[in-house]
Amino acid sequence: MTTSKPVLEAKGIVKELGRGAGKVVAVKGVDLSLVPGELTLLMGPSGSGKTTLLSILGCIMTPTEGSLTVAGTNTEGLSAEQLAELRRAHIGFIFQSYNLFPTLSALENVRIALDVRGQKGYKAAARSEDVLREVGLGARLMNYPGNLSGGEQQRVAVARAIVSSPSIVLADEPTAALDSENGHAVMELLARIAHEQNRSVLAVTHDPRTLGYADRVVKIEDGLIVGEERRPQGLDAPEITDLTKRRKAHA
């Protein structure tokens, strides 16, 4: 069990959505911490509040109640621009439907994440290229999303999320749109990012194939954390090793 200091700490998070008769309490008092070097899965059925909680942890939504501290900064009362600044500094996102820019190449899709952080020019291009090679897309740098497979697009999205070296990576259903092999490849990448680069990775999922990669599984139901389980195997899980071997053999 890790004893690192949390890089993200949520306490008593409540989120109400809608107004009047249509008001729904999507998150009902959640406490959650993320520490570096750990891949956490947030699992739960549809409508359980996973994505809402992820939005709050990613400083995209503000909680109705409760406090959120990201890299030592309490987010309470921060403006939209200040929250964006916090995201720029500390958080990388991976989305279920990749959300790549169709008019930009793989390399440009990654570079834009550095560009919004004010990192431009040759160094930014070189860094983007390195990260794309890291995720196995060295030969697809100039390809546009339309010419990439779903798995490749998600790997571009992973590269975009980590290119600025954020301390926290948040992934929303990263394997939902992928077949089994690509789903495993992406989860393997996320596990490596957590363990080898010492980042906090939180993946929202209801995909049981992802369980083998998790250091920790948090279960949410009806807006409440209903269970938490630590899993010791991490990157050494047999299925990961098998997959790595398969991919190497394929390469």
């Binding site: 995209i60 600044e85 995201r87 720029r88 958080i91 989305f95 959300n99 820019f101 834009i112 919004v116």
Partner: peptide, 16 residues
């Protein structure tokens, strides 16, 4: 608009 929303989620300032 979705691309701009993605940019915003990635942390871009509104100025960008």
């Amino acid at each position: 608009i979705n691309e701009f929303a993605t940019l915003r989620a990635l942390g871009s300032s509104s100025g960008y």
